[in-house]
């Protein structure tokens, strides 16, 4: 927040095609979260261009950025970021609320996505009554609710044990199988290998960008 600026990213040039599942890796301070924030329009790059679904994202005012975030992007956070005083289903329905969807339709859709992540029975529970894995699944359902083009996940398994991590990854892989583009920031190797492409960042530049063979989380679970 100070006046001295720090250049975190020093020239990133890469493209993600529709339907890809990419993980962004790097040690802490390598700029992976900053990259994700710029992609998520939560932050803006000092220079360079960013094109999302043929729309150039540039000089957005907050209102337009909010609309784009709502329409194009779904966020999954390390710390889940659910709203504590809302029930699971209400949390999932939030993006739809900001789209101006009517309440009954909103609830119907939200229930649909909760079912999809296997938490239909927990719809009326508050986040503090859910386990970490369940919370992350609610967050995933919420990210999916607005049917976005891209899912952005910032260390989605960072707060989970490995068994739960794999369960969550299995879910994410399933979503990718349905054709959704997914970007995951992680520093865990095994999680990265569950994606289809790994981009390695170091000190703000891409040092490696390679396609890998995806390890299915389901098989990892039963090892």
């Amino acid at each position: 927040m100070g006046s001295n600026s720090l250049h975190v990213l020093k020239g990133i040039d890469f493209t993600v095609a529709e339907g890809e599942m990419v993980s962004i890796m790097g040690s802490s301070g390598s700029g992976k979260s900053t990259l994700l924030n710029i992609l998520g329009m939560l932050d803006e790059a000092d220079s360079g261009s960013y094109t999302l679904d043929n729309t150039i994202i540039k000089n957005l005012n907050e209102k337009v950025a909010a609309r784009y975030r709502n329409k194009f992007l779904g966020f999954i956070f390390q710390s889940f970021n659910l709203i504590n005083y809302k029930t699971a289903v209400d949390n999932v329905a939030m993006p739809l609320y900001y789209q101006g969807v009517k309440r009954n339709i909103r609830m119907e859709k939200a229930m649909h996505y909760l079912e999809k992540v296997g938490l239909a029975d927990w719809a009326e529970h508050h986040p503090n009554e859910l386990s970490g894995g369940q919370k992350q699944r609610v967050a995933i359902a919420r990210a999916l609710a607005s049917d976005p083009k891209v899912l952005l996940a910032d260390e989605p398994t960072g707060a989970l044990d490995s068994k739960t991590s794999y369960e969550v990854m299995e879910l994410i892989q399933g979503i990718n199988d349905e054709g959704k583009t997914i970007l995951i920031v992680t520093h865990e190797d095994d999680i990265a290998h569950m994606t289809k492409r790994i981009v390695n960042l170091k000190d703000g530049i891409i040092i490696d960008d390679s396609v890998v063979t995806q390890v299915r989380a389901k098989s990892a679970l039963h090892v």
Partner: peptide
């Protein structure tokens, strides 16, 4: 603050 951040990430405009 955090809740407001979440809401904005989910697409709430500043006016909202």
């Amino acid at each position: 603050t955090k809740e407001i951040g979440i809401r904005r990430a989910l697409g709430a405009t500043p006016w909202e």
